[in-house]
Design a protein around this nucleic acid. Sequence first.
DNA 1: TTGTAGGCGTTATCAG
DNA 2: CTGATAACGCCTACAA
Lengths: 354, 354
Amino acid sequence: MANMKKIAELAGVSLGTVSHVLNGTAKVREPLRKRVLDAVQVTGYQPSQLARGLRRDKTNILAMIIPDILNPFFPGVVRGAEDVAFTKGYRLVLCNTDNDHSKEIMHLNALRTYLPSGLIVIPSDFSELTVQAESYRRTGAAVVCIDRLPRNWDGDSVTINNAEGAYEAASYLIGLGHRRLAAITGPLHLTNSQDRLKGFKRALKQAGIESIPGYLQETTFDRAGGYAKTKILLKMVPRPTAILACNDMIALGALLAIREAGLHCPDDISLIGFDGLDLTEVTSPQLSSVYQSPYQLGAAAAELALDRVAQEEGPARHIVLKTELRIRDSVAPPAKAKRAAVKAPTRKAGYVLA
Amino acid sequence: MANMKKIAELAGVSLGTVSHVLNGTAKVREPLRKRVLDAVQVTGYQPSQLARGLRRDKTNILAMIIPDILNPFFPGVVRGAEDVAFTKGYRLVLCNTDNDHSKEIMHLNALRTYLPSGLIVIPSDFSELTVQAESYRRTGAAVVCIDRLPRNWDGDSVTINNAEGAYEAASYLIGLGHRRLAAITGPLHLTNSQDRLKGFKRALKQAGIESIPGYLQETTFDRAGGYAKTKILLKMVPRPTAILACNDMIALGALLAIREAGLHCPDDISLIGFDGLDLTEVTSPQLSSVYQSPYQLGAAAAELALDRVAQEEGPARHIVLKTELRIRDSVAPPAKAKRAAVKAPTRKAGYVLA
DNA sequence: TTGTAGGCGTTATCAG
DNA sequence: CTGATAACGCCTACAA
């Protein structure tokens, strides 16, 4: 492959001049400039990212560390980041941690020697990112934390308004006449789980509803967890009339458990999920959910990281994205209260199919 | 960050010796060796991948080019490749083409200067990869093509047995008593679409069923396509009693169209998808599908690529993975023939939930 | 067995 | 403005 030396020969100038033309680092007389550019055209020359990175102590690489691309929430995040990165001439390196913080550390270490410009991280469970990031920043890399935050995180971040989203969902159910509301939360050591629970509780409190401890179930963010906890909820007396699942996978498991119990959603029990994944449209009933945009999350993180590359100083920025309650077919007024129930707001359109 | 020079000083040896110890490229006396290793320990030294890559003309980077990580088939492929890459000390760079072959070329060009060891590509529509790959191989990179092949591809590849999978699905439907079988295929310029159609036709031919042209519909690999084409199929007289959708997204659209037409799956019409995505479990009825393992596809590709790095010569290898027909609730004997129908094989278990 | 030194392709500094 | 030239960190002949 062509290199700068060859371009210099072809253009009949020195190596330094080629560099100046290519990087705009000094004014070069037009004729010389043109000769260089022509030589570049002819040879199809591209600068070696390796040599450039070595010299500059920084590559056009953006690294992204996530729990698991197989979890349907994450592809959108990755895609958002990749699009922004690509547009700005960066490549995205993808790492999966399986929520294992030792694997997170391994990735962090391995990536370091590639001198990435930025690092976008969805922290694993019990992440020690706050410590690691410090050493990273010394290499000049921007570290942006998204979706959930590790303990004591004080750097740049992009999250969503978890509490508000859960609050709206719970309030909506209460508005329908529900008084016996249950919540199935994700692991409560995660900040997003904590915040969603807070929002849920606030809605109850505001409506003067006393929360029954058994109605609050904590589990993992997956279908199996939702299934198991819903089984428990359905056996309670009195049985809750509505469930807020703190993500869609949990809601999916809940739906299955409801069906298996011979109950019907939403007639016997209302259900709202969280995230608003595509698959909420293909279940029956279609699942109501607190939608958030994974794409926007990833894109904002990449913007933030690359801004930080250009402008290293400045206070940490915290971007908080909005959620949107999407009501579909999985909610209804509670059976006993149907007649008295407040009229439900107009059904919002979800994705349109064709 | 520490570099080899510092290690050499700390260990009281020369730079070359450090390199020899680290790469096992020459025998070094135990005491020296130990001093080097200790210094590495103490400093937490890691070799610069950039400098190493520059010197070796090759980095520990594996690049992966796919249409779109948002398509639920691809995350599994990416994860399979990343796991293998990670295990062997490689990082995965992810690129989305949106099936746009000019974007594919842009990625290919941009990646080149990072000197990746390997390249795993799911070709875009009308890909010119066969040409591009040639120039890539000259840089010493292994190029592996997966899922579908571009025109004239003669390099390493990993695909699945598309024809066989479609054949089995169609044969199964025929075995249930269906005679009016329709197929909704993906774009027929793609090799995987072509092969699935071939398998479908072979099953019909073998059963002595004449295929009605209108029963063969070509569309894009998405829900909207499946929806539109199914609408057409449902208006035909006589109406098909079974549909083979050439991927699960198409099947999803078909399911919706069937429901909207006031028909019931499987009582009025049987449906089998292709890919066996997780979401086939959450529809109702649960979708039968020709399962393939995206994870295995990605993992095999990474193995193949990295094998090729170690062993550059040798004939092209073509790995063909098996599919597995997973029958769930979306198939039944045709209404009129129910009594006479052959007994359906035992229902295979899909994923187990808990 | 160990050390020396050249060069991979850039960028950046500093003379001219 | 333009051109040498010294790093960046590592590998690898080749020499000792």
